[in-house]
Design a protein around this nucleic acid. Structure first.
Lengths: 226, 226
DNA sequence: TTAAATAGTGTACTTTGTACAAATATATTC
DNA sequence: GAATATATTTGTACAAAGTACACTATTTAA
């Protein structure tokens, strides 16, 4: 069925989420070579022999987006012997949340890849390997996190309106939320700092701007205050 | 610092919990060889080239305890380059919950190990590698699962009293719970089947026996009804 | 029969979540 | 500058879930 190799190869793949053009999107790269040449895939690469897995995931992230200091959490390790058609490759998957503003996607002269692009997570193209499963699982995890911890702020600019915050929740949970209840809950949490500024009205009534108070995140679990 | 190898080695280690003698315990094995010769460790082994990671974890579990069909969940993948003193070994850790009755621990003529024993999780000996961290993290995970899903039944015999059930929660959470509230909550969940039997009074007033209704567990997340 | 041990039970209060509709502030346009 | 369109903002009543808390009942053993 597949070529036996002496050892496993170990990679890390990173599902990178952002909100862009009013949609929840993931970063995909188009593969230059077989297997799955020309297919879209989530960015990934081999873990180097002297680097931690976290460091490898961060390196992959940085190669493609040039961002650091963002929410990055280990998701799950996928190791079906048949997930790669020609070798035994175990991948330790991560997911990340970033703000898409001022991010310039890049290849870094990487001949492995012919394109890098944001794709709406609810309208994905056919994907290489088991990457569809990995994205679905990371979406599930992000939703779970959202229940306990306002990680959505990783997707928002420094200053944001309550409507923008709610919109990010709705995009991730893929359902409408009640405006009054959403505000009540968030204001009760006292993790929002009400600013003296308002939107300079791109349209209609200006909205109050908020920022997040400092939050200590434990990336291994994603709870408040570790 | 450590010998460079061409590739990573990939293992799986399994934290196996049980309740025995009124204590929450984990299964440890004593290592026969270096590194960490003579030190206690959680059972583990290399993932074979054609087996899934789940299958490898299950194999390790079966080698030591001869049980199957129990709750086994992937925990986290630990990959610090310094976690193993002489090689680069990435380990995909799992945890399992089993009933300790009628379990015969075994080596299977394994020269890697000189002893197999249950150890109270709150009084651990010095452990090999990063196994202390792995056990601590799995304890944290078991506690999280307990909030959503009655996985504690994996630790109990087929028929049990509410006091026994509560005791298992108290051992895992490491705190006392209120008897009335505990009972109210569980009976409201309607996942318990009240039996017509009582304990044949090993002591004092006999207690009603219960069993669990069939529950569909999704081991990747551990929620009710997948 | 009495004492000791464990099993079993209910109520008031607090907190959290949910359903739901009207008034307000600005920009645009006529 | 008046009217209109659009997005912002606000509160209350009800339901559900969690928490604190103390006494009675049944059995065994002395």
């Amino acid at each position: 069925m597949f070529k036996e190799t002496k050892t496993h190869e170990v990679t890390t793949d990173v599902v990178i989420f952002t909100i862009k053009d009013g949609k929840l999107k993931v970063l995909l790269v188009k593969r230059a070579h077989e297997p799955f040449k020309g297919k879209w895939a989530i960015p990934g690469g081999f873990i180097r022999i002297s680097e931690t897995i976290d460091a490898a995931a961060l390196r992959i992230l940085k190669e493609k987006t040039n961002v650091q200091n963002i929410y990055l959490e280990q998701l799950y390790t996928f190791g079906d012997p048949l997930r790669h058609p020609t070798a035994r490759v175990i991948t330790c998957a991560y997911f990340a949340l970033i703000r898409s503003d001022d991010i310039v996607l890049s290849f870094e002269d990487n001949s492995e890849i012919t394109e890098v692009e944001w794709h709406p997570v609810y309208e994905l193209p056919p994907l290489a390997f088991d990457h569809k499963e990995i994205i679905e699982y990371s979406l599930k995890r992000v939703r779970e996190r959202l229940e306990f911890c306002p990680i959505a702020f990783q997707l928002l600019p420094e200053k944001f309106t309550l409507t923008e915050l709610q919109k990010s929740y709705e995009l991730i949970l893929d359902k409408k939320l009640d405006k009054r209840n959403f505000r009540k809950k968030f204001l009760a949490l006292s993790i929002l700092k009400e600013l003296d500024e308002c939107t300079k009205s791109g349209s209609k009534r200006p909205a109050r701007l908020y920022s997040f108070n400092e939050i200590t995140l434990n990336s291994k679990r994603g709870h408040f205050f570790s």
